[in-house]
Design a protein around this nucleic acid. Structure first.
Length: 558
DNA sequence: AACAAAA
């Protein structure tokens, strides 16, 4: 996938922050002289075989997260990376990992590093990364995911692999069958931790972590830093270097949105009209249900569209091949479930269609975030039926602005279901033109104290963590005196450690999340700092949101 | 009201 560095040329300054005001114009023009101060891959301490592979792919400048994380990973430090897909996150760990691993060889059934991914597609993407950048190294990797032959995976393990890329279920399954020893695994990457949390994988991840040596390097990545994620990071990481980047502000502002309200039986027709009336190069079309993915795909195909289906019940080979066809342009439309809403890195999507309004508002943000990448204008149109009103309202509340209503030619616009007291707030005007740069606010940080009082972590975990710390400090090389590096006076850390009396929890749910987050740089979009709430009943705080999904006329990248 | 992942 060529997307990893797609934003290498985007308007970040050397601090890894968007070059704020100029972003909209500079993104589309030749790089001015001052951008030449960007770091080079050759400055990061990577070895020659990797630099050669990078160079051959035409990349010169690391993205901000790569520039910030790679030197620390090479030093052996733990890294806590807060970054969304599209920031070059994957290469920020694959590149230094390849460097760390080169120089010695893997032994049978004992992988030397482990990368955990929440979905099979993501695991495959990471594997592709290793193929690309590992071109001049002799390292081996194996993909350990469900839905494919376990015999092949076992055979690969027996031959010895340097890098194991896995989804949690299959990894544990194989481990329990004795096909795998992780005592030699010295590097652990937990990718997309927020997604793992959403999907209920955290207990599995915790279990896996206990199978590894405490004397390991851990890299932990998440798109958000909700309190629960932060607590996990505290549990898994030792004195991590925190690296935080967001996509350029200009990217988030170049998504044109629209909401077509039609009767349920008009939805397919409305979608076809929309696709035909737009200049759709390639589009993701999201459905809420797997069977609707199948039906819609068949319907579109019948009407002559170039379409493929993607959801978790399809055979793995079909999932991969369909995604590949979509990426290569062989298929124009990918009808999918939320399996594709996050993480999958498909560069240059012109459109996202929500055939169904997502039930959880934050999924809307993830879905439409697939388009409008790399400074190009994206289009995200949502088809709603009259019963979807509460979900649309939840989205508008989360994003802080209405989705502008749109007419679909030849289809009658429906009315919201009964009691349609849509709060009269300027529907029909798409953007209020308000700047979206306010960042976090103090009241929120105050509320964070409350989050600390929520029940969090089991006694078992705290004990483990204690053991791990002790063990580590006993082995001073190669990790050196990292314990001494830690600022002892950080009392937030001390507070978090004392949870021995709290009830045991083995499953983490969104609704358990506390109301607030603190401690991030100004460059984080505010929606990432919002508590993730799955209950829609009565959010106790008025969410504030920064993403500007309006069609700001002064901001057309084209 | 669904989705993801181990069968």
């Amino acid at each position: 996938m060529g997307g990893a560095f797609a934003e290498a040329e985007s308007p970040f300054d050397e601090n890894g922050e968007p070059a704020a005001e100029a972003a909209g114009t500079e993104a589309t023009e030749a790089a001015p002289a001052e951008l030449d101060t960007r770091p080079l891959f050759s400055d990061l301490g990577l070895s020659e075989p990797l630099l050669r592979a990078i160079d051959e792919m035409g990349y010169k400048h690391p993205t901000p997260i790569q520039a910030q994380a790679i030197p620390y990973v090479l030093m052996g430090r733990d890294v806590l990376g807060v970054a969304q897909t599209g920031t070059g996150k994957t290469a920020s760990f694959t590149l230094p990992l390849l460097d760390i691993l080169s120089g010695s060889r893997a032994r049978a059934r004992m992988p030397r590093s482990l990368i955990l991914e929440p979905t099979r597609e993501l695991a495959l993407q990471v594997a592709e990364n290793f193929v690309m950048y590992g071109k001049y190294t002799k390292l081996t990797h194996a993909l350990l995911i469900g839905g494919e032959s376990m015999a092949d995976q076992k055979a690969a393990l027996n031959a010895g692999v340097d890098v194991l890329i896995a989804t949690p279920g299959r990894l544990l399954d194989l481990f329990e069958r004795g096909g795998l020893l992780m005592t030699q695994t010295r590097t652990l990457v937990i990718d997309e931790a927020d997604r793992m949390l959403d999907m209920g994988f955290i207990p599995d991840v915790e279990r896996i972590v206990t199978l590894l040596s405490p004397n390991r390097q851990t890299l932990f990545f998440s798109a958000t830093m909700a309190p629960e994620i932060k607590r996990l990071a505290d549990a898994f990481l030792q004195d991590p270097k925190e690296v935080t980047v967001s996509r350029a502000a200009s990217v988030a502002t170049t998504i044109v949105t629209g909401l077509a309200l039609v009767d349920e039986h008009d939805k397919r027709k409305a979608l076809r009209k929309l696709i035909r009336s737009e200049e759709v190069q390639n589009a993701l079309i999201f459905c809420n249900r797997k069977r609707d993915v199948d039906m819609l795909h068949k319907s579109l195909t019948k009407h002559g569209f170039s379409s493929g289906p993607l959801h978790g019940d399809l055979a793995q080979s079909l999932r991969f091949s369909t995604l590949e066809k979509f990426k290569s342009g062989e298929i124009q439309l990918l009808v999918c479930s939320d399996v594709a809403a996050r993480g999958i890195d498909i560069g240059g999507l012109s459109h996202v269609f929500n055939f169904d309004v997502p039930i959880h508002a934050e999924d809307y943000v993830h879905r439409i975030g697939r388009t409008g990448r790399a400074g190009r204008t994206g289009h995200a149109y949502t088809i709603a039926s009259p019963e979807d009103r509460p979900f649309v309202e939840a989205i508008e509340k989360l994003t802080g602005k209405p989705i502008p209503p749109m007419e679909v030619e030849g289809i009658e616009t429906a009315e919201w279901a009964e009691g349609s007291t849509r709060r009269g707030r300027g529907r029909g005007k798409s953007s209020d033109g308000r700047s979206t740069k306010s960042g976090r606010d103090e009241s929120r940080s105050g509320a964070a104290q409350g989050a600390e009082e929520k029940p969090q972590r089991s006694e078992r975990r705290d004990e483990q963590r204690g053991e791990r710390r002790n063990e580590r400090s006993d082995r001073n090389e190669p990790r050196g005196d990292r314990r001494n590096d830690r600022a002892p006076e950080r009392n937030d850390r001390n507070e978090r450690q004392d949870r021995s009396n709290e009830p045991r929890r083995d499953r983490y749910r969104q609704e358990d999340l506390g109301p607030a987050v603190v401690g991030f740089g100004d460059e984080i979009p505010a929606f990432m700092l919002l508590p993730i709430r799955r209950d829609r009943r009565a959010p106790d705080a008025e969410p504030e949101v920064e993403i500007d999904v309006g069609d700001d006329p002064g901001f057309d990248a084209g």
